[in-house]
């Protein structure tokens, strides 16, 4: 969400959801503006390069079609990340089936691409990009959600389907791996 939009409407997500249900289409625009960039960042950080727009759109369509199932136990953004990740995994499974790949392993779902390729500029940034490329898919997801999106371990656990403790371990292992790479 841009700061300009945020400053115009500080209503919480739940209020906006209620407003949308009552027929306020502007509430939907505010919700999408608020969360779509983060969802897109997450999707790209997971290594997705193609049809990011479609995936983000599908995430919102799926979420708005099932808002009655949103229990607000976690934040709307966390829920959106969870849906986006699920769609991403589904898409990759479908791609693999198309390629006649038999083994489907969720742990390999996030591709081993450089999460920051095409974005890095200087030497330091390039090195950080290379370091992140060395992370396991799960470590990269956890690290991105923690550092880039600022999610708590509990929310991260909900998104990636693990425990808070495991998320904490993935995060610290990721930091360690990046530091070791940069120190070499």
């Amino acid at each position: 969400m841009t700061d300009a939009i945020r400053s115009r409407d500080e209503r919480g997500d739940l209020e906006l959801i209620d407003a949308w249900r009552a027929g306020d289409e502007r509430a939907a625009t505010l919700l999408v503006s608020r969360h779509a960039p983060a969802v897109a960042r997450f999707v790209v950080s997971c290594g997705e390069r193609e049809e990011v727009d479609e995936l983000v759109q599908d995430t919102f369509v799926r979420a708005f079609g099932a808002l009655d199932g949103f229990r607000a136990d976690s934040s709307l953004r966390t829920w959106l990340f969870t849906i986006a990740r699920r769609l991403l995994l589904d898409r990759r499974r479908a791609d693999r089936r198309r390629r006649d790949r038999v083994q489907i392993d969720e742990a390999d779902a996030v591709t081993e691409v450089d999460a920051l390729d095409g974005v890095v500029a200087g030497e330091t940034e390039r090195r950080i990009g290379q370091a992140m490329a060395r992370l396991s898919p799960k470590q990269r997801e956890v690290f991105t959600l923690r550092v880039t999106e600022g999610l708590t371990y509990k929310d991260i656990a909900d998104v990636v389907g693990t425990t808070e403790g495991a998320a904490r371990v993935h995060y610290h292992n990721a930091v360690q791996t990046i530091k070791e790479f940069l120190d070499d």
Partner: peptide
């Protein structure tokens, strides 16, 4: 630095 490198989509 990692936060600043987040992809802008």
């Amino acid at each position: 630095q990692v936060q600043a490198l987040a992809p802008r989509v």
